[in-house]
């Protein structure tokens, strides 16, 4: 009777075989060629077979050698960090850098224990934007596109509201208050470093609204001097 003695090896073996099979399946349409004239499929197919072989060895080891158990995988940090990062990527085109960063901070802080209420609000927000992103990006859900467009149309207000609600709800706790303050400082610093100092092109409110004001002041000054 087979008994899994090393769960880590079992997991690794299955993962390797999965990758190897994906490699073989999606590589089957590539020209294999011959050793003399290697086609685009030659190297990948060989690699995939080796990976499969290694995976099989891992599986054999998992029932023969004692090994460590797989530690439980905590869902919360992975989930909220990923959601935050993805929201940042899709939101930045609509709400620009500063607000996208604040949103990211609020979502990312959920990976630690928070009060139920903020957690629900943030989750609701994430789901709303998740639907909007799918509606505007995936062809199959094109019928939802007006909804997505509408959400993105007012997305900056939604983000601002989220941040304001978060700040208000958590102002009582020292930790969360510090996070709020820090994230505001951080987004100011980010704009300064990346956009002003390093000159990287990114959509920011600072560049779009504040810079023109400065240049206007500058032109007023120069016109005064010109007179």
């Amino acid at each position: 009777m087979l008994r899994v003695k090393s769960p880590q090896d079992l997991g690794a073996g299955l993962l390797f075989i999965f990758i190897g099979c994906v490699g073989l399946y999606f590589g089957k349409d590539l020209t294999y060629g011959s050793a003399r004239a290697m086609g685009p499929g030659f190297f990948p197919i060989w690699l995939s077979w080796i990976i499969n072989f290694m995976g099989a060895v891992c599986l054999v080891r998992s029932v023969t050698l004692e090994g460590d158990p797989i530690a439980t995988i905590p869902i919360r940090p992975i989930l909220w960090v990923s959601v935050g990062v993805l929201l940042f990527g899709y939101l930045i085109e609509h709400v620009r850098l500063e607000l996208a960063l604040l949103t990211l901070a609020v979502v990312a802080t959920q990976s630690r224990r928070q009060t139920d209420l903020t957690q629900k609000i943030v989750a609701g927000f994430a789901i709303l934007f998740g639907i909007a992103i799918i509606a505007t990006r995936v062809q199959t859900f094109a019928f939802l596109k007006p909804f997505g467009d509408a959400v993105f149309g007012v997305s900056q207000w939604i983000c601002l509201a989220l941040f304001a609600i978060y700040a208000l709800l958590t102002w009582g706790e020292r930790d969360a208050r510090q996070t709020v303050i820090l994230s505001v400082c951080m987004s100011i610093a980010a704009v300064t470093i990346f956009v002003v100092l390093l000159g990287q092109a990114m959509p920011t409110y600072t560049a779009d609204y504040i810079a023109p004001v400065f240049s206007k002041i500058g032109s007023i000054f120069s016109s005064i001097r010109g007179r």
Binding site: G84, F88, L101, A105, A108, L182, A190
Partner: peptide
């Protein structure tokens, strides 16, 4: 960590 994540994303 929020600051570090922000940095990675930017």
């Amino acid at each position: 960590y929020p600051a570090i994540i922000m940095f990675c994303c930017i």
